[in-house]
Design a protein around this nucleic acid. Structure first.
Lengths: 187, 187
DNA sequence: GTCTATATAATGATAGAC
DNA sequence: GTCTATCATTATATAGAC
């Protein structure tokens, strides 16, 4: 396995900082400090701030697909796989309370900035949507599959947004349970 | 009725721009240009950028309360009032597709900035939550009222976030209908 | 209340030595 | 690949004339 290059450390740091502080609010100086390199060195690896954003989104796409693939192999039944998706809300609840959903908050920010990377960022959502849709198809709900996928994706986004605003742990548990109950009628 | 003062025009512009472009991304110069005043004049009315944010949040609190009061007087039954809330998703669908929910996107941004106005901004959410909770109480669901209020608030947030990312009009209609159906069991 | 001019700090980005 | 030094631009904010 190859040694981790400086470039990877930059993407590591940017990925986290963009999530915790937002894309625009995170300056290159701050990233460089975090990685303990100079700004000049930073520009050797990425020729603009938008280029790291591209790299971060690309990494998130890879990681998301890897997670979906893992769920695909782990859970035996489609409805159990969907539960894996819902349960991220519980697993990541501390981060979500602090920073919201990494996908939803990024797409919202880029929409306001009218940023050219909007489309790529939205692709992360599409990965989830298409994967969820596929599960519903396998459950026999071919016609409604896309709408059901969007529904569950929306529910999880709402939970993340309010958990972030209200810092409410019980709300997350309640909602996750409600989504599980909702899911039963399609299992 | 008093003449509209420059101060009001500044808050008008800031309110819209913070919604459309985000708080941090909206510079004072841009606001000043929009209102057609100088930056110096701007600082005569607001001594810092955070002070306009305060004013904008305050105005949104006032406007939100006024809207809730209006619904309280218009709709005869509590479940019809709740429907008024849900229907904002349809009424404002064009803006929501472009910029998301003004409340959710602001609280998310301020959370990432760790901004001191977070608490005040979240109060807008609380107005909705408490109002919705009151409606469910009047429908006889005293015990669950808060949880039901948070549920419906979360659903609407999820719809706004995904409508913004996917630019999907049909999704909004579908989800609004689903929320109406869900509401029936509590009516 | 409104303006012009300016101060100050930070940002994204580049040049060039090592 | 990494650094220091620097640039141009923009941001928030202030001073002071009218």
């Amino acid at each position: 396995m190859a040694k981790k290059a400086t470039r990877d450390f930059i993407v590591d740091a940017a990925d986290q900082l963009f999530y915790q502080q937002g894309f625009e609010h995170t300056s290159l100086s701050y990233i460089a400090d975090e990685v303990k390199i100079s700004k000049g060195n930073f520009y050797h690896h990425f020729k603009s701030k938008d280029k790291i954003l591209d790299a971060v989104i690309h990494r998130r796409l890879i990681n998301t697909q890897a997670m979906l693939d893992k769920w695909q192999n782990e859970g035996k039944k489609p409805d159990e796989r969907i539960k894996s998706f819902i349960n991220i809300l519980l697993i990541n609840q501390n981060k979500i309370k602090k920073f919201g959903c990494p996908v939803g908050t990024l797409t919202s920010e880029l929409a306001k900035l009218n940023h050219s990377a909007q489309k790529e960022a939205n692709e992360i959502f599409s990965l989830f949507k298409n994967w969820l849709s596929e599960q519903f198809k396998q459950l026999g709900h071919t016609e409604q599959a896309d709408a059901l996928a969007m529904h569950i994706l929306g529910r999880s986004q709402g939970v993340a947004t309010l958990a972030n605003a209200f810092q409410d742990q019980e709300f997350i548990s309640n909602e996750v349970e409600k989504i599980h109950e909702w899911l039963m009628q399609y299992s």
